[in-house]
Amino acid sequence: MSRAGRLPDALERGRAASNLADPVEVVIRASGVQKVYGRSSSEEGGVAALRGVDVVVASCEWTAIVGPSGCGKSTLLNVLAGIDAPTAGTVELLGNDLGRLDERARARLRLLRVGFVFQRFHLLPVLTAAENIELPMAEAGVARRDRRQRSRELLDFVGLGGRTDHRPPQLSGGEQQRVAIARAVANQPDVVFADEPTGELDSRTSAQILELFSSLNAHGTTLLTVTHDPEIARRARRVIEMSDGRIVSDGRPAR
């Protein structure tokens, strides 16, 4: 690992406790998932982004979803994460049937057990790096003292220990993405969804981000990554290739 530090003890302890309390072998189970955009929910009247996707993701996997633009990768990620609702089919996330949860319960599930990393970082520009990381912890009810300590540990972990009080506009793209990763794992999630996490970064910075993902996965975080980056696809343990709203291949990456 070039710049990433050791995963914070708190995160590892949290994971151990989480696994003991609620062991989940299958993190995601999707069956017959369809997603149609447009005024009509039928495939004939709208734009079909997903055409009957079945996928199972096991705990501790690092899965990369690849495919050409518009093939439905991001839509699948959003549906599996409970951000978008499927037009048809079922999605089980961490043992919860998302179709049976209301928005409040889905939000709570995302807050406590899921992390997100976006292509454009999506940090709050008016908050400092540390505050951005503290935000999900504050919403989860973590005490101020604990979240301060953990945010500093996480900033050290992503190699930004000296940037605690910097705001996103004062950080480079790579630094912002590292803060976003720290935010994603702040509540010790079981799974992290990443949508083109290196899409806005140069190759050197991308490599640093990949190191962080590797480290997280090595410590037991399940990763599901949508990417065009062949390096991510190479580093993932499993690659799902999509085309035209369908999975066309699913297996280990070519090394």
Partner: peptide
């Protein structure tokens, strides 16, 4: 709008 969507995505409750 995007920030609000991000907050919702990371699980911040709508009323918050």
């Amino acid at each position: 709008f995007g920030e609000i969507a991000t907050l919702r995505a990371i699980g911040v409750a709508g009323h918050r």
